[in-house]
């Protein structure tokens, strides 16, 4: 059989396996990891009216993985009557952030400008992070809709990080690293992140050194958070398919290794 045909069979198998697992309604039980529990407990412990800064630092391509995280965390914040200052330090995250906030705000009857605001995008992210430590009004003179920032009810008195309880960076890359490195030591700002699974190991050193408060990682992290929140969403929905895909890949790796060692043995004999 040609290599192309083998490739097609593997892809077709994965497609069928994942699709089948996705269409079957299976409830999977998973206990929350320490980091997800810590994130949830912290948000849960905050008094009403506390200001959270949510930064949408990701591209559209990572939406399937990071959006379930941002959805459940923002829902949790709005349910507990926390207020949100949204922004983006990644150009592609701008419209996504605005739409996500509006969508969830509508579910909880939250009012733009009072319960939440979206400041928009700012280029030169390091300068923006450092600048907000001095004055958010200087870095974002206007919000995404063009309103003067210092006249928006939620922003009155919110001058810098002193008035922000936590920065939550929803990211698919290293943008949260800059939040940790520049907002953390200099302005003593707590940083939490929701990120793609591929980035989890990159953030481990910041977690273990205490520079990063907590992490909600990947679709699995979203599913765990949804379980704690009590309302299953896309994270939980994706777990059976995720498990099926992993099982499929494990089987493929085992088969691949068996074929490899068998071929090597044959070549050894023939030579």
């Amino acid at each position: 059989m040609s290599k192309d045909k083998i490739r097609w069979i593997i892809f077709a198998g994965l497609f069928l396996f994942v699709t089948l697992a996705y269409t079957i309604d299976i409830k999977m039980v998973s206990s929350p990891s320490y980091e997800v529990q810590k994130s949830f407990d912290y948000i849960e412990s905050l008094p009403e009216g506390t200001i959270l800064m949510v930064s949408f630092d990701h591209e559209a391509s990572s939406l399937p993985e990071v959006q379930p995280i941002s959805l459940v965390m923002i829902r949790h914040a709005f349910r507990n009557n926390l207020r949100i200052v949204g922004l983006s330090l990644f150009a592609e995250g701008t419209a996504i952030g605005y739409r996500t906030l509006n969508k969830i705000a509508a579910e909880y009857d939250k009012i733009y400008g009072v319960d939440y605001v979206f400041l928009g995008f700012k280029p030169q992210h390091i300068a923006a992070i450092l600048g907000m430590g001095e004055s958010i009004y200087d870095v974002f003179p206007h919000d995404y809709l063009g309103n003067l920032t210092d006249t928006i009810p939620i922003m009155i008195g919110i001058e810098n990080y002193d008035n922000i309880e936590m920065v939550i960076s929803i990211t698919d890359g290293d943008r949260a690293v800059q939040w940790i490195e520049y907002a953390g030591p200099r302005y003593d700002q707590k940083v939490m992140t929701g990120l793609t699974a591929a980035m989890i190991t990159s953030y481990d050193p910041y977690l273990s050194s205490g520079q990063l408060f907590s992490v909600v990682g990947g679709l699995k992290g979203a599913a765990e958070y949804e379980n704690l929140y009590g309302v299953p969403g896309k994270g939980n929905r994706g777990m059976p398919a995720q498990t099926a895909a992993h099982l499929y890949l494990i089987v493929m790796i085992i088969i691949g290794n068996i074929i490899y060692f068998r071929n090597r043995k044959r070549q050894g004999r023939s030579s």
């Binding site: 399937p64 989890i200 679709l219 699995k220 398919a241």
Partner: peptide, 20 residues
């Protein structure tokens, strides 16, 4: 190994998102 495992998980999540 851990990084590779997480990366596979990440790519599968993207694929599941498209299937959804």
């Amino acid at each position: 190994g851990a990084t590779f495992g997480y990366t596979v998980m990440s790519r599968m999540s993207t694929f599941i998102g498209r299937i959804d």
